[in-house]
């Protein structure tokens, strides 16, 4: 794997292979010394044009567990905020000798531009670009679902027959996009639920079914309910009347939680708005995988960094 830009580019077998490597990486976390020498001498740059402490420290932990040198480059307060272009930043990182660049950017496609530009030869890992994709989030979600369902026998398995309902701001969500492509290619049946204002035009052509009613979706007893964060700026731009109505129609509150099947799971990519899209009861219930997602995120990102920096082995899938 040269870069990881989107889950849309990942085939079924390649995705399963990444999850399997992530299983190996997860085993490392259980050891006494949680560190592998694999990427010693490699330099990983976390290039964050948007603040995201959670994603950044997850990548940082992943790189460090593989013994890579990590440089954190936050665009805020740097030359970038003084108008330096993506091109100049990329060429600077190339000159420093970055082997991999983990990029978070507010513009959709910025990682793809970086990968295609010729400005830098490093492996590019998309850590969230605009409203486009967040592939490592989807991989860690798939990993989490697979582990919950198959436990220690998860290796080599996909998600055939698993029903996943994703609820919330699909229009602006890179997490939703990456999950739709990845989970559907792994065989899961994905349902998207949101008010019509938060569903993109053309969503009916995505590999997912689409509905407006959360209650109708939950009545089908999905295996997984994934709640998306509602950004506060959406509340001021006529996507829905107010937080109260949103919460009543599309929030996972305690009452809706009780209607879920006993073995169903509740996911959230974080950070959560407790009381808005998810109640504390739901977030803290045994069904919730919120903290597992965080832990698995490190394993998945170790796998991704390992694969882009060492090349995916032939025939691994």
């Amino acid at each position: 794997m040269r870069h990881l830009l989107s889950t849309r580019d990942l085939g079924h077998d390649e995705a399963v292979a990444i999850l399997d490597v992530a299983e190996d990486m997860a085993d490392v976390a259980d050891r006494e010394v949680r560190k592998l020498p694999t990427l010693r001498g490699k330099t990983v740059v976390n290039l964050f044009f948007e603040d995201s402490t959670r994603t950044r420290i997850s990548f940082e932990a992943a790189a460090k567990r593989l013994s890579a040198d990590v440089i954190n480059f936050s665009a805020k307060g740097s030359s970038v905020s003084k108008g330096e272009s993506l091109k100049d930043t990329a060429q600077t990182l190339a000159a420093i000798g970055a082997d991999a660049v983990v990029i978070r950017h507010g513009a959709s496609g910025a990682p793809a531009v970086l990968a295609d530009s010729g400005w830098i030869d490093a492996a590019i890992v998309n850590a969230g670009d605009g409203t486009h994709e967040h592939p490592t989030q989807a991989l860690l979600d798939a990993f989490t679902i697979r582990r919950r369902i198959h436990g220690s026998a998860a290796r080599a398995k996909a998600l055939d027959g698993v029903s996943v309902t994703i609820v919330g701001d699909i229009l602006h969500s890179r997490v939703a996009r990456s999950n739709v492509w990845l989970l559907s290619s792994l065989g899961a049946a994905v349902t998207l639920v949101a008010p019509a204002t938060l569903l993109p035009i053309g969503v009916t052509e995505w590999p997912a079914s689409v509905g407006y009613s959360l209650d109708a979706a939950l009545a089908k007893r999905p295996d997984v309910v994934m709640m998306l964060r509602i950004q506060s700026e959406r509340m001021h731009d006529a996507f829905f009347p107010n937080a109260h109505e949103y919460s009543r129609e599309w929030g996972l509150g305690d009452e809706r939680l009780r209607t879920l099947a006993a073995d169903s799971i509740v996911m959230h990519p974080g950070p959560m708005n407790r009381g808005l899209e998810i109640s504390s009861g739901a977030a803290d219930s045994p069904r919730s995988t919120v903290l597992e997602q965080v832990a698995n995120g490190v394993s998945v990102r170790m796998a991704v960094l390992y694969l882009v920096l060492s090349g995916m082995k032939e025939g691994q899938s």
């Binding site: 959709s108 409203t131 229009l171 053309g202 969503v203 052509e205």
Partner: peptide
């Protein structure tokens, strides 16, 4: 252009 492609690319339509 707003359509299926803009939704997939995450570019405002």
């Amino acid at each position: 252009n707003e359509g299926t492609l803009s939704g997939q690319l995450g570019l405002a339509g």
